[in-house]
Design a protein around this nucleic acid. Structure first.
Lengths: 212, 212
DNA sequence: GCATTTTTTGACCAATTGGACAAACGTTAG
DNA sequence: CTAACGTTTGTCCAATTGGTCAAAAAATGC
């Protein structure tokens, strides 16, 4: 018996693995049903364990969701962070659009989880949006503005440009059912992302060409 | 006692009014919380009546939601229906974009209700999407294609063009919290829709101009 | 004014669901 | 082997919630 206060040591082995497995299951269920629509039982079953067992690793539903949200936001904004003013502006933007579209294709669950949260008014991440996200976007808007001043791309509103890129790319994850319903079985297959990439490139780049 | 079977006659007076009031309340609650997140009690309170009373006018939660959904889809697609090939293509598209953006500004609840449904996989309106919506979009895509053939606008994918217009305009309703958080108190005020309109016009029109 | 029909509500119910708990089970260090 | 600690689960509980029902209250037709 030591005099030190009980230090909660992470058992890194099992604890880390189980937490990971739970988060994976939670992502699946939350993204498909929203926060209120998801039940702990569903998540526990998807993670292959009993509900009390799950609650041994996470304090509760909220805890899982928050953990997921915070982690997600980081990877979600990674492409924007990479937007750099070293390369050619048009190439940079094209690359950003492509990356975002690939994320919609490869991580649709993450996109939907995020969309769900925002739709409900972002009760759990409002501070993050007003703090971290806002300053990041401001920073990148500054870069984009410098490109405009240099005549590399057409003058327009950098913030709304970023919104437009977000909206058009995430649309293919968040509104996937609608996209596929409208395109039909033929055009709505795996090729839809390539079609989208081609279209978006044309839309943004042509629309951003400097001069007339 | 007549021989005729009981004919349910609509009391048009109260019944019509109450149903309308309930639907208005349901729109408010459903759009803010999603289907599963909304409770009948909440809706009843928002409609200023007791739960059993509400259930006197609607068979249940599902009933309200479906009624709302069907009615909404009609008004939601009205602008697209108006897309006509009589006027100037660029003017037509510009007008469509403007109208859609105005709907996001004036009817954000309707937009969010719709987004919520699609996000969850559109369990209640999938057939409508694959039927009515698809054929409407196909029809309009044909018009857009003819504009391209005539050299009036740049050649590109009409379906993805429509998606892009939907995505960018609805973004201002569905992701409103994020938009305002990022823009901040100054730029995120009422003026944001005018800024968005200016930006979107430039993005789409410049990008659609024929030739180089 | 009275009978009939429509509208409203308080009380109630069953199912779902987030979470608590203690007991059982497994693992590991000495 | 055994004590100590980490892990797992069956069982239980209280709150929420969709929906019912019979009876009261209001409106309506004559």
């Amino acid at each position: 018996m030591s005099i030190e206060a009980a230090a909660p040591r992470r058992t890194t082995r099992i604890q880390q693995e189980k937490r990971e497995k739970i988060l994976e299951a939670a992502l699946e269920i939350f993204s498909a049903n929203g926060f209120r629509g998801a039940t702990i039982d569903q998540i526990a079953e998807a993670a292959g364990m009993s509900k009390p067992n799950l609650l041994y690793y996470f304090r509760g539903k909220e805890d899982m969701h928050t953990t997921l949200m915070v982690r997600l936001l980081e990877t979600w904004l990674a492409p924007l962070r990479e937007l750099d003013d070293v390369g050619d502006p048009v190439t940079e933007l094209r690359s950003y659009i492509r990356k975002k579209l690939e994320m919609s294709r490869d991580f649709p669950r993450e996109s939907r989880l995020f969309a769900n949260e925002i739709l409900q008014g972002a009760p759990r991440i409002k501070e993050l949006l007003e703090g971290e996200l806002r300053s990041l976007v401001d920073e990148k808007a500054k870069i984009i503005k410098s490109w405009m001043r240099a005549g590399k791309i057409a003058r327009t509103d950098p913030w709304h440009l970023i919104f437009a890129i977000w909206a058009t790319t995430q649309h293919y994850a968040d509104f996937d059912v609608q996209v596929r319903s409208v395109l039909g079985p033929d055009r709505g297959g795996d090729g839809r992302f390539e079609d989208a990439a081609r279209f978006l490139e044309q839309l943004f780049i042509e629309g951003l060409k400097p001069g007339k």
